[in-house]
Simulated assay, not measured.
Amino acid sequence: MSVVTETRSVVIERDFSHRPEKLWRALTTPHLIEVWLMKNDFAPAVRHRFTLTGDWGSVDCEVMVLEPNKTLSYTWGAMGVGTVVTFELTPTNGGTHLRVEQAGFSADSGADRYYNGAQWGWQKFTAALDEVLAGLD
């Protein structure tokens, strides 16, 4: 007998007035990631394991998908919760549409604080990403 566990995703979509290449740089360059997200030892290579470190703790990650200027996906393991974060970049007339999805949150009520935290966090992170982009050439 198998048990199907429902999961939820946090999805944030935002338009940036910058080309996909510029956004990609901010998503994959360690010193820029540190400004908008967290301290890290990221490297743009599939299967690269890295750690994001914030004042609240750390996140264990592994790069799963890397399609330059299009898609970046990595695992996100923190506080016993394992999810996957995917960034999808779509060129627009005015710049780039970014879709960020963090998938795999348990649908049980005990996981609500992680799900709600991710909703708040990605809003904050994408706002900081906009500031980083404004400062790049």
Rank of each mutant, 00 (worst) to 15 (best):
V3W: 06
V4R: 14
T5A: 12
E6Q: 14
T7E: 12
S9P: 08
E13N: 07
R14V: 12
D15H: 12
R19H: 12
R19P: 12
E21P: 02
L23Y: 01
R25M: 09
R25K: 15
A26T: 03
A26V: 06
A26C: 05
L32Y: 03
I33T: 03
V35E: 14
V35Y: 00
M38C: 08
F42Q: 03
P44R: 01
A45P: 00
H48K: 10
R49V: 06
F50I: 02
F50W: 07
F50R: 01
T51P: 00
T51F: 00
T51V: 15
W56V: 08
G57K: 06
D60F: 05
C61G: 05
V63Q: 04
V63G: 06
M64N: 00
L66Q: 06
E67L: 08
P68R: 02
N69T: 12
N69P: 00
T71I: 13
Y74N: 09
Y74S: 04
G77N: 13
M79V: 01
V85N: 04
T86G: 04
T86P: 08
T86F: 04
E88G: 03
L89D: 07
P91Q: 06
T92C: 10
N93M: 09
N93A: 15
T96F: 06
H97S: 13
L98W: 10
L98E: 02
L98H: 07
L98V: 14
L98S: 08
Q102V: 05
A107E: 12
D108H: 14
S109W: 06
G110L: 13
Y114L: 01
Y114N: 11
N116W: 02
G117W: 07
G117R: 03
A118H: 09
W120V: 11
F125S: 14
A128K: 15
L133H: 04
L136A: 06
